[in-house]
Amino acid sequence: MSDVISLVAAAPVSFGDLLTPLFVFNALSGLFDWFLTAVVDGSFSWLADVTGLEFLTYPYMQRAYLSVLCIGVVGPLVGSFLVYRDLSMVGDTLAHTAFAGVAVALFLDATLALSVPPLVGALVVATIAALVVQVLVEYTDARSDAALAMVLTGGFALGSVLISLTDGGISVGINQYLFGSLATVSRADVGLLVSMALVVAVAVTAAYRPLLYVTFDETAARASRVHVRAMNTLLSILTAFVVVSAMQIMGVILVAALLVIPVVTAAPLGRSYKGSLLYGVVAAEVAGVAGVTLAYLYGITAGGSIVLVAIGGFVVAQISRRTW
């Protein structure tokens, strides 16, 4: 575990560095530091006392749990609008382009000594990719699944080329982005992640009705003059946010799972759409917390264990529905 801790200590950018030029954000970052120490550490330490589980007091585990709790809310929240429109692959596509963003950041750092935090690179590139997907589907004759496949492989190709162009040094760190890691979530990362989760949650709450209308019946939504294209773009960008938030723990390859599996798990459980959203969040939280815990206890990869627990939850939901 000591090498893991040193990795955390060696994290290149702090949340403060990232936002230094902006006074407002400095204030926010102070607030966030307080949140992290007083609220998060406080409640986890209490939990550790009650349960006797010492690892709950480790800061990097607290950050991992905090990350996964955020992802568990926004993953199904955004994912449900994708799944019911047969757009489940959007998450996977944007995750792979986010990988290109990480590679761009590492490349700039290595060649031009420009320090761009990898997560910021991922966010920028994934957001651009989200817009590109929209354009491809709307303005060309490309079928949407083919357009997605093209952007997915294109993003991953760009990432792999950039990495091979950079000195061998950075390829060492690339595994953590591919497969995810509990230990490498820095304070800065968690700050970015919590803010993105907040943005996503607020956006989905605000745009809930037009998003639902477009998801359920796009033609009628257009007839009612709901801005379908704007909603599609919003959904893509929110997906990019979720994917980037979850990428560090889940890894690029598995990150789309929390957009999809909890949603299909919840589908038969809730009667209403809102009810199924709630069940989806519960399923994602259970999978996330259990997955992170198992990953720590058995020294296995977090992304993999989260996805397997999530699939287990899906199976249980299916069986219990049939036996009730």
Binding site: F216, D217, S224, P268, S272, Y273, G275, S276
Partner: peptide, 20 residues
């Protein structure tokens, strides 16, 4: 044939009529 598998209640759909 619209959205047969989507979990959504009758009332939730009818409420969409008020969305505009």
């Amino acid at each position: 044939k619209t959205a047969r598998d989507m979990p959504i209640t009758v009332r939730e759909v009818v409420r969409m009529g008020r969305y505009p």
